[in-house]
């Protein structure tokens, strides 16, 4: 069944149809939540809340990219949750590294793809962990923008719509987020692959 038909059915209250949409988008929604929330369980909760919220607001969906609409909801859920936590800080017990067993094996272009040897595999996972740590050091608003644009591949306007910030703000925050991640990654230079190696020899 095509996506539009499922959306129409879900708008009429068909939970089964909506769950088919959830199965299609849960990976993307969860990843956005995961990189914004920094925690596996919090990310799952946020993604779940986002789907519940999406089902309830489905009547307000007026066409356009359904994935962008969903990611806007999950981004807002995550940012709201982080703001709430900032007001009432709680000790995180489940801060963790990327789980190697959960890394999507269907990610041919990913850093963990084409693993040649166990040593190489370990290096790749360390690199992925390093990037994740650098991203997670960014403020939540910066994090959301860099994930939506660089990781999920959305345009500036879509990202602006998702985080409900002006286009200029999105441009500016993205540039600063990239610069901060690059500076952070300098600590892990030895992990970076040849093709991705950042070089500062240019100006030497």
């Amino acid at each position: 069944m095509d996506e539009m038909r499922l959306i129409n059915l879900a708008q009429e209250g068909d939970l089964e149809a909506f769950n088919q949409l959830v199965l299609s988008y849960q990976m993307r929604v969860y990843n956005v939540a995961y990189y914004i929330m920094k925690e596996k369980d919090s990310a799952a909760d946020a993604a779940q809340d986002a789907f519940i919220s999406a089902f309830r607001k489905l009547r307000t969906y007026r066409g356009g990219s359904f994935s962008a609409w969903l990611l806007r909801i999950v981004t807002n859920v995550c940012l709201d949750e982080l703001r709430r936590r900032k007001r009432r800080p709680i000790a995180s017990l489940d801060e963790e590294l990327l789980d190697s067993d959960r890394i999507n094996a269907l990610d041919p272009g990913g850093l963990t793809a084409h693993l040649a040897s166990p040593e190489k595999s370990v290096e790749q996972f360390e690199l992925a962990d390093a990037i994740k740590n650098c991203i997670q050091q960014l403020p939540p608003d910066f994090r959301a923008i860099i994930i939506l644009i660089d990781m999920q591949g959305y345009g500036y306007r879509e990202a602006s719509d998702m985080v409900r910030k002006p286009l200029g703000t999105v441009k500016s925050r993205l540039a600063r987020a990239r610069a901060r991640v690059r500076d952070c990654l300098q600590r892990y230079r030895e992990l970076l692959p040849e093709s991705y190696r950042l070089n500062d020899e240019v100006i030497k």
Binding site: Y30, I103, L111
Partner: peptide, 12 residues
């Protein structure tokens, strides 16, 4: 490019 290639994570 590095961020784009960041591995996707399976939901728990």
């Amino acid at each position: 490019n590095v961020i784009e290639k960041l591995p996707r994570v399976q939901p728990p």
